[in-house]
Write a protein that binds this DNA or RNA. Structure first.
Length: 321
DNA sequence: AAGAGCTGCAACCGCATTCGG
DNA sequence: ACCGAATGCGGTTGCAGCTCT
């Protein structure tokens, strides 16, 4: 029943990508730009389905992707946004432009869910106005309350969004490009891809001293190794493994939305490659710069949804304390 | 030292949505 | 308006590497 999978035909390779495949893909995209994925396997000679190529590019090879540990602020953002949006990872990822939806999803499932669960089972844990994990309300009751809070918050958001505010905030971050419809010049768009190929090759050569690098973990190291030698003094978007733990821990939240750790070409890239829907786009057709969202989320006296967000903020704060 | 169990993440799968003829 | 193809998205899986015993 239904349409056969796109890579149903035989001879399609699956599993981890090799550095050779990555290079072929990046080279092709550098030349032709992303899109028309159907043509990619044919034109590159890759024995991969178009879907696999797109996924590899968007989740891994695309410039401007930050890998490694999530910062405290990123975690808080994810918690906030997950509470607001649910498991709409692509929408959440559109507000953390250096992270992919897959990354955020994985991080939520492997780290944050556990943290929240642990917190909820902790006897001293209390949420906001008094519902506590030690005396949990019935699941259905809790869910109803959460849904009510979310609805309240959404309503408050709609009310809070006057046109002049939206205008003001879009002006406040004119260069981040995330909400701009302008397309950057192709040349600058793909400059960082060329850079990545160079890094890939460089790292790959170094790795070749070891047994043949045949999995994606090696590829990842290739990028990191190549950039890691001089990352301490740069604003490289792919930090070395060594300094991942310290990266941006004290970075102000604003930088998350200002793309300060991206070079200009990468910013352009995320601009051209991130047509993801903005918050609530499919519900109330609102478009709101993240700075406003975050300001609103964190503004203690902001709106009717205050209690909900104080609950969420409490949870987030408890996790990081 | 070794093997069993656990964890994290890259990649896959299949359904939903969008696009174009 | 309809239909098939292309793309997007979220859930799930498989496996490499790590930790524990």
């Amino acid at each position: 029943m239904g349409r056969p999978p796109c890579c149903d035909k035989g001879g399609v390779k699956k599993g981890p990508w090799t550095p050779e495949e990555d290079i072929a893909l990046v080279s092709y995209i550098q030349e032709h730009g992303p899109g028309n994925w159907r043509a990619v396997p044919t034109n590159t000679g890759l024995l991969r389905c178009s879907k696999s190529c797109r996924l590899r590019w968007t989740n891994y090879l695309r410039p401007g992707i930050k890998r490694g540990n999530f910062t405290e602020q990123e975690e808080k953002m994810i918690i906030h946004l997950q509470a607001l949006l649910g498991n709409r990872w692509a929408a959440i990822a559109s507000y953390l432009p250096q992270r992919t939806d897959n990354d955020i999803k994985n991080y939520w499932n492997t780290h944050l869910k556990k943290k929240l669960k642990k917190l909820q089972t902790s006897p001293e844990c209390r949420f906001g106005d008094g519902f506590s994990a030690s005396q949990p309300m019935a699941r259905g009751q809790w869910e109803r309350r959460l849904q009510t809070d979310i609805d309240m918050a959404k309503r408050a958001l709609s009310e809070a969004l006057s046109p002049e505010k939206a205008t003001c905030l879009s002006e406040s971050s004119p260069s981040n490009g995330l909400f701009s419809s302008e397309k950057p010049a192709q040349a600058s768009t793909y400059a960082s891809s060329a850079e990545n190929i160079a890094r890939l090759l460089k790292g790959w050569t170094r790795n070749s001293k070891k047994p043949a690098p045949t999995n994606s973990a090696v590829t990842q190291n290739s990028f990191n190794m190549a950039s890691g030698t001089d990352t301490a003094s740069s604003t490289e978007a792919t930090p070395s493994v060594a300094n991942r733990n310290s990266i941006e821990l004290s970075e102000p939240l604003a930088s998350l939305f200002g793309f300060e750790s991206l070079d200009s070409s990468n910013s352009d890239f995320s601009q051209s490659l991130s047509p993801e829907p903005t918050l609530f786009q499919d519900e109330s057709k609102l478009e709101m710069p993240l700075t406003l969202l975050e300001k609103w989320l964190l503004d203690e006296g902001a709106c009717q949804g205050k209690q909900f967000f104080s609950d969420i903020t409490f949870v987030a704060d408890a996790i990081f304390s």
